[in-house]
Design a binder for these strands. Structure first.
Lengths: 117, 117
DNA sequence: TTGACACGAAACCATTTGGTGTCGTAAAAT
DNA sequence: ATTTTACGACACCAAATGGTTTCGTGTCAA
């Protein structure tokens, strides 16, 4: 029985702490202790987040002596981009249709589309 | 005014059922009973997922008689696209990885970068 | 050799999540 | 007028999640 229930990318990025981790690890490879220094929680907690990210393929680990260094591995985010691609047409359509109609920030007072007037 | 939404977009799309919901509701506006007919769970469960999506702004509800019709509202997904945009350079641009290698002191490994990549 | 450090594993806890079923009520249908 | 339908509001439950502390082990330093 192979381990099927890995974490997927969608789950992995759902947590704000993990998104911060990705950003941090994009800058540079870092060991756990240094990483956890950036967060208001225990090293163990950060470590568990890192595991989730690793299971989703979003970070890679490298053992160097007694430390484990982590670094961003962005490629799995392409899944997300692909998923998003499907929905782009929905807001592109809306925008072009509403362009002449709503020029505000999206806090529309009317719902739906009416002809002028 | 607008209270901080309890669920954000990242959380909302983390669940596979909710992603299916988005896809379904992109096709067409639908009432709850019809929607839940597409899922192997109770209407109440689907309704709760719809609420999460609504809190994230990803669906809009419209009361029509005794039914509540839901439809995709894709615009908040732009946040996701924007977030993703930051990471595109990591897979589009191998040069950035080279840059990181060069900027580090380079004494930490002998196997850091291989030709061809 | 002894001690400090880095880290994962494990046990534990509170809260959230994803699901269930029941019930009340407004709207439609008969 | 009565019944059926659509739905949200609840109350409830098991499992997952996000956090903690403690402990064991491998690695580096004195």
């Amino acid at each position: 029985m192979a381990a099927a229930p890995k974490h997927d990318v969608f789950q992995a990025i759902a947590d704000p702490t993990r998104r911060q981790l990705l950003k941090l690890l994009g800058e540079q490879e870092m060991p756990v202790t240094v990483i956890s220094g950036h967060f208001p929680m225990s090293r163990t907690a950060v470590s568990k987040h890192l595991r989730v990210l690793a299971e989703a393929g979003l970070v890679k680990e490298r053992k160097v002596g007694r430390e484990t260094r982590y670094q961003l591995e962005a490629r799995p985010l392409q899944q997300l981009k692909e998923w998003l691609g499907y929905y782009e047409r929905f807001w592109e359509n809306k925008v072009s249709m509403l362009k002449h109609y709503v020029e505000s920030d999206g806090t529309d007072t009317k719902q739906g589309l009416r002809p002028e007037g």
